[in-house]
Nucleic acid binder design. Structure first.
Lengths: 200, 200
DNA sequence: TATATACGAGACGTTGTAGTTTCGGAAACC
DNA sequence: GGTTTCCGAAACTACAACGTCTCGTATATA
């Protein structure tokens, strides 16, 4: 590790453009089969790569999965516009593209659940890549609504900011029903907004 | 199957008092290691039984798990008193004993999640044994509150009745934090009651 | 008493998967 | 051109778990 830079190794160079393709294949298999159901052969086949190519880059299945989760394309939630109302901000999070992205992350998380208790490192990685970003954004929307005086200052936004993610997760993992726009609207208009005293 | 009653088979009889012990052991291992991590040897060892004894009663690991989930001790939610207020009814669901029971079910469900998509039969069994009973009870509490005029008749109780289960599930599976009385109180007083227009 | 079956313990065969190595060929360096 | 390392494909090894079977013992019917 220490002399990776200093040693100008000879021979054919590793084709690092394949890294993202392999990690993407790993996420696909993970979302489809879960951690225990996923095999290295599946990932290699999906990426049209040899198994040795994978083991040359990651020392084990566990490390490959952690890297795949860590490198998941981060959604650009910061780019969401400030619409001036809490409802407008929340609706901005349920555009088709954002829903699709969240759905993929939820499917990956489904495959990871059984591993979270076995691998703290994976649990931490998954939290930072999947769970935390949306929670922070939602919480920020609510804090903005308090700051502008739109909702009560004593609203329990720590709890309220987890309502949407919790119900989407429950609907996917337990109920195994689609998290579509209609469902998310009923969460916003039937739970969150009434809870902060807004009646749309 | 058809002549189980008519044929008075000879030899030592199967000791059916061991069935619940074995199923209980299976649930323990399931909650601890998840479906894929669970082995028949673990269950047999925990139940102090031989592997052959298990296979004499259930044809496969999958069938054993389905039976174990189906036979989970049902909580007596119907025995909860009608306190006259929605908050009182909801508080009745977070007595220590009820929380403990829900915690066990949640741990079992954690171990099942990865299997739900692979085995529709298990998914159905888990739904009926774990998911559905609490949802029905919560929904009934809310309907009662509407009927007695305590909360608005147009409250979205289909969605609201899933808030508590969703947030408890999310907290267990994803955040891996304890679902204690304090957390449940913040869900009730910070989300559900405000959402139906009650300010305790 | 003789027979048949259940019991716990554990050996056994089979299968599937993680991880390693080998192969022919291609690309980078000397 | 020679050497080294990469590539995809696939054979190979090591091991863990399912499910079966055997053992000595216990308990039921005839």
């Amino acid at each position: 590790m220490t002399q990776l830079e200093t040693a100008p190794r000879l021979g054919r160079k590793r084709d690092h453009t394949r890294d993202p393709e392999i990690l993407e294949a790993a996420l696909d298999v993970l979302a489809e089969s879960g951690y225990d159901g996923m095999t290295i052969d599946m990932v290699a086949a999906r990426a049209k790569a040899g198994k040795a190519t994978l083991y040359r880059r990651w020392p084990s299945k566990a490390e490959l999965v952690i890297d795949a989760v860590a490198c998941m394309k981060k959604t650009n939630l910061d780019a969401l516009p400030d619409t001036g109302t809490l409802r407008g901000d929340l609706l901005g999070m349920i555009k088709p593209h954002t829903i699709e992205d969240a759905d993929r992350k939820l499917k990956v998380m489904t495959g990871l659940v059984s591993m979270l208790s076995r691998s703290p490192e994976l649990a931490d990685t998954a939290y930072q890549a999947i769970t935390d970003p949306r929670a922070r954004t939602t919480r920020m929307f609510m804090q903005r609504a308090i700051d502008r005086g739109e909702i009560r200052a004593d609203a329990d936004i720590d709890t309220l900011s987890m309502v949407s993610a919790s119900m989407a997760t429950y609907r996917t993992l337990i109920l195994r029903k689609p998290v579509d726009r209609e469902f998310l609207l009923s969460v916003i208009d039937g739970v969150i907004l009434p809870a902060v005293g807004l009646t749309p």
